[in-house]
């Protein structure tokens, strides 16, 4: 399971030892490490920016020294990588965003963020898969369903996917 800067490897200790797994990982061919086909999957995420769907768009933009239109233009300018899934089922950590969009988390988190909210904080973008507490700046909202326990796989995005946001 990959995370932003680590990898968790689970295995059966009765079948293979720690040293055996470590030796195997260190011996994997370098060329194959560049062969992640999932990296090339581009997923388009349509977003309604601002207004009730993105109540922090204007304040975040002014904090960054941008206009709201500039913020949206930068957020939709290029595809960004899903660096990991975490926090809640299906929540993607997407980035790295350009320095122009680097903003700390809100000083006061919300106790409830609507499902589908698209947010930015700490150099990353995220999408809330369900109604959850959250401290990121909400800049828009998508109707894309990120987590469906009945679906296979249940999460719409995977680490390594590329996300291209687009403004509706």
């Amino acid at each position: 399971m990959p995370a932003i800067a680590s990898l968790l490897v689970c295995f059966d200790p009765l079948a293979v030892s720690h040293t055996g797994v470590e030796a195997h990982l260190r011996g994997l061919p370098t060329a194959r490490r560049r062969g992640d086909s999932r990296e090339r999957r581009v997923v388009r995420v349509p977003v309604r920016y601002g207004g009730e769907d993105g109540p922090d768009l204007e304040s975040a933009a002014w904090t960054l020294g941008l206009t709201p239109d500039d913020l949206v233009a930068t957020h939709t300018a290029e595809p960004y990588r899903v660096m990991m899934i975490g926090f809640a089922p299906g929540f993607p950590y997407i980035g790295p965003l350009p320095a122009a969009l680097h903003i700390p988390r809100r000083s006061t988190p919300r106790s409830a963020v609507p499902a589908g909210s698209v947010a930015i904080a700490a150099g990353l973008s995220g999408i809330y898969p369900a109604r959850l507490p959250g401290g990121w700046h909400l800049i828009g909202r998508t109707d894309m369903r990120l987590f469906d326990p009945q679906a296979r796989p249940p999460v719409a995005l995977a680490a390594g996917d590329l996300v291209q946001f687009s403004a509706l």
Binding site: A3, L7, L28, R33, G35, R38
Partner: peptide, 13 residues
């Protein structure tokens, strides 16, 4: 990390 996960998936111990 992503590349290594893919390599491990393709080459399990």
């Amino acid at each position: 990390a992503l590349d290594l996960a893919a390599a491990l998936e393709a080459n399990p111990p």
